[in-house]
């Protein structure tokens, strides 16, 4: 029972982190109709930057903030220099150019980091566990990550749904010409949206750092999962992206944890240890296949 609760919490944690990444992808697609493969690289930049800043500042929170800002700045720059030339292009061109960006970013970070995985310890304050109601112990760091990610997700939703700026963003998604006519700079809005998406991905990367080993290529793993999420949730729908991210986070986490247990009732231990990883890795994609069969436009498409 305790293990189930813990895994569900882990699933929610993972789902929220994935949402931070997928939301940026979805926003950028919704507003600029751009498919950005390099979005995962911004996640990686966030993780590496946080590790470096943590090393310098010795202050976890400060390093997360710096890493988020750095990722946003990189996003800003990349949008101004390259990405904005791609808005009017075919999706094929967008895919190719952003693939080029990934190659460059990966190699650059491999060069800077010397190709060795980096490990960041969880910050001292959160290195222990917290006691949850029902006597379940849960790592304090994960708890904090869940809270920060939830706050960021909520803040983003509030901005988009309730503020004037969010209204402008939604308007430029549905009718850029109209927004231009009432005197707003659509180019600036695009840059801002891209930078905010980059910042969110960077934040996710910075928070993920202490949970995993930080290495080149970590971005693509989450990028592909984010694509699955966006497809399941329905392109351009933030609400759909959120629900799909939670589904994917839970299915993936629970699958990995529970699949071996479930299978060990049926097969020998040896068979389980060779099949369970393969099977649990496919669960998310099976989910995607089922959604495609039932609702090809995504669960929450407008």
């Amino acid at each position: 029972m305790a293990i189930l609760v813990e895994q569900v919490l882990n699933g929610i944690n993972y789902g929220l982190l994935l949402f931070l990444i997928a939301a940026g992808l979805s926003l950028v697609f919704g507003v600029m109709h751009l498919i950005n493969l390099a979005h995962g690289s911004l996640f990686m930049v966030g993780a590496f930057a946080a590790a470096a800043f943590a090393h310098i500042t010795k202050n976890f929170l400060l390093s997360v903030i710096c890493a988020t800002l750095l990722a946003a700045a990189v996003g800003w720059l990349v949008e101004r220099v390259i990405v904005r030339k791609l808005y009017a292009r075919s999706h094929l061109d967008q895919v190719l150019a952003t693939f080029g960006l990934i190659l460059f970013a990966n190699e650059l970070l491999r060069w800077i980091s010397g190709g060795v995985p980096q490990y960041v310890p969880s910050p001292g304050l959160f290195s222990g566990t917290v006691m949850l109601p029902g006597g379940i112990e849960y790592p304090a760091y994960r708890m904090m990550v869940t809270s920060i990610a939830a706050i960021a997700a909520l803040a983003m939703w509030m901005v988009i749904a309730k503020t004037r700026a969010g209204m402008l963003v939604r308007a430029s998604a549905s009718n850029p010409t109209m927004v231009r006519h009432i005197g707003f700079d659509v180019g600036l809005i695009s840059t801002l949206v891209f930078a905010v998406g980059a910042g969110l991905a960077g934040l996710a990367g910075a928070l993920t750092g202490p949970l995993v080993s930080i290495e080149v290529g970590m971005g693509e793993q989450v990028l592909i999962l984010s694509f699955v999420i966006v497809v399941i949730g329905g392109l351009g729908s933030i609400r759909g992206t959120f629900l799909a991210a939670m589904m994917v986070g839970l299915v993936d986490t629970l699958g990995r944890a529970l699949m071996p247990l479930a299978l060990s009732g049926i097969f020998s231990a040896r068979a389980v240890s060779s099949f369970a990883p393969a099977l649990s890795a496919t669960l998310v994609y099976i989910l995607m296949a089922v959604v495609l069969i039932m609702r090809p436009q995504g669960l929450f498409a407008r």
């Binding site: 498919i35 999706h91 592909i224 393969a278 890795a281 496919t282 995607m288 495609l292």
Partner: peptide, 24 residues
Amino acid sequence: LSLRTRGVSFIMITLGFAQMVYFV
């Protein structure tokens, strides 16, 4: 399965399924 969609979704889905094959 992938051809139930077009455009961007098609790109993402073909990538997703290929990744599944990789993992398996």
